[in-house]
Write a protein that binds this DNA or RNA. Sequence first.
DNA 1: ATTCTGACGTGGG
DNA 2: CCCCACGCCAGAA
Length: 110
Amino acid sequence: MVAEKGFFEKVYEIARHIPYGRITSYGAIAKCLGTAGSARMVGWAMNSSGKFPDVPAHRVVNRKGLLTGKHHFDGTNLMQQLLESEGIEVIGNQIQEFEKLFWNPIKELS
DNA sequence: ATTCTGACGTGGG
DNA sequence: CCCCACGCCAGAA
C-alpha cells in the first residue's frame, strides 16, 4: 500500500499540535503513533527537530516532567526559558504541576 | 555486516 | 518516590 509517512513526520505532526503553555511526554506521542514502547524513537526524532522550527521540542519531556532533553538545546537553560516563557514553572529541570499542564495527544487528537 | 548508544517507558523489588 | 533490568528500533562508527 501507500508508503506511510516517515516516523519522524508523525512525531512532528503531533508535536506541532501541542498547544501553547502545554506539554506532553514522549511515551504519549509514541502511543499515539501506535509504537508504544519505542518512546526512544520519539526522542530520537526530536533530535532532528532542529531542522523543523515548527516542532516545539521544549514542550516534550519525559514521563516525570523532567527536562531530560534540555541538554540538547543550544544553550543550557534554553529549554527551561522557553517553557517559563509560556507560563510553565520549571524548577531544577522539573516541571511544576506537570500533570495539570500535561497535554494528552491521544485524547485530544483521537 | 556488527556493535553501541540513546531527548523513554514499564515492571519488579 | 527510588533503584535495577529489559525492551524498543533508528542511526552512527
